[in-house]
Design a protein around this nucleic acid. Structure first.
Length: 187
DNA sequence: AGGATGATCGTCT
DNA sequence: GACGATCATCCTC
C-alpha cells in the first residue's frame, strides 16, 4: 500500500510551479489514491500511451486531459512496473494569487485551486509535464509543508463510476479549500 | 473510420 | 441538483 502512504503524506506539502510569468504555489489539502488492481485506475487493464507515466518511478508527474477541457495532475508512487498514483484534487493557495486569478478568471479565491482541473489551470500545469520529475529546482516540484497536516480523513473517491466503495480520498478536515460535495466531506 | 467514454467545471433552474 | 461543453484516447468494426 505504498500509494496510500504517499497519498496521506502529501497532505500538507506544498506544490510549487515556477513559470516565466511568476511563481504560483499551494498547500495540498485533498488527494485520491489510484492503485494496482483498482478498476477505477487509468492503468487497470494495462499500459497504454496515455497511462504510461503511471508506470514511471515514484515522484514523477502523471498528467492527463479529461472531458475535453481539463488537465489533471498526479504524483506517481510505485516502482518496478507497479502502477500507482495520487491525484491532487485541491490546494490551499499560498503564493502568486494574482497570477492564479489571471489564469483562472475566477470570481472567488476559494475556488482558485479547489478541484483537480482548477488547480492545474491556476498553476498552468498541462500535458508537457507528463512524466516529468518533481524534484527541487524543476518547473514543478514538491516542497516541505509550511504548516503540518491537521486531521486527515478518508472518504470515497469523487466522480468515478467503478470501484466506488473504496475509501481512497484523503483530505484535511475543516479546510475550506477542500473540494467535493459537502455530503462527502464528513468521513 | 467511427463511436463511446470520462479521476471536471461552469451555468442554469 | 441537473446538464451540456468538448476532445483525446481507446476499442471495435
Amino acid at each position: 500500500m505504498q500509494t496510500v502512504a504517499l497519498a496521506k503524506a502529501l497532505i500538507g506539502l506544498c506544490l510549487v510551479r515556477r513559470s516565466p510569468d511568476g511563481i504560483t504555489a499551494g498547500r495540498i489539502v485533498e488527494v485520491e489514491a489510484y492503485l494496482q488492481n483498482d478498476r477505477a485506475s487509468h492503468a487497470y487493464g494495462g499500459r497504454t500511451a496515455r497511462n504510461a507515466a503511471m508506470f514511471a518511478p515514484p515522484h514523477r508527474a502523471y498528467v492527463y486531459f479529461i472531458y475535453g477541457n481539463h488537465w489533471c495532475f498526479n504524483v506517481t508512487a510505485e516502482r518496478d512496473a507497479i502502477h500507482g498514483a495520487v491525484l491532487i484534487r485541491a490546494l490551499e493557495p499560498l503564493d502568486g494569487l494574482p497570477l492564479m486569478r489571471a489564469r483562472r478568471a475566477s470570481e472567488n479565491d476559494r475556488d482558485l485551486c479547489r478541484g483537480p482541473g482548477r488547480l492545474c489551470a491556476a498553476l498552468a500545469i498541462d500535458g508537457s509535464f507528463d512524466g516529468c520529475d518533481l524534484g527541487a529546482g524543476r518547473r514543478l516540484y514538491l516542497a516541505p509543508p509550511v504548516r503540518p497536516a491537521d486531521r486527515v480523513r478518508a472518504s470515497a473517491r469523487i466522480g468515478i463510476t467503478r470501484a466506488t466503495s473504496k475509501r481512497l480520498r484523503f483530505y484535511e478536515a475543516g479546510n475550506p479549500f477542500v473540494s467535493g460535495p459537502r455530503s462527502l466531506s464528513p468521513a
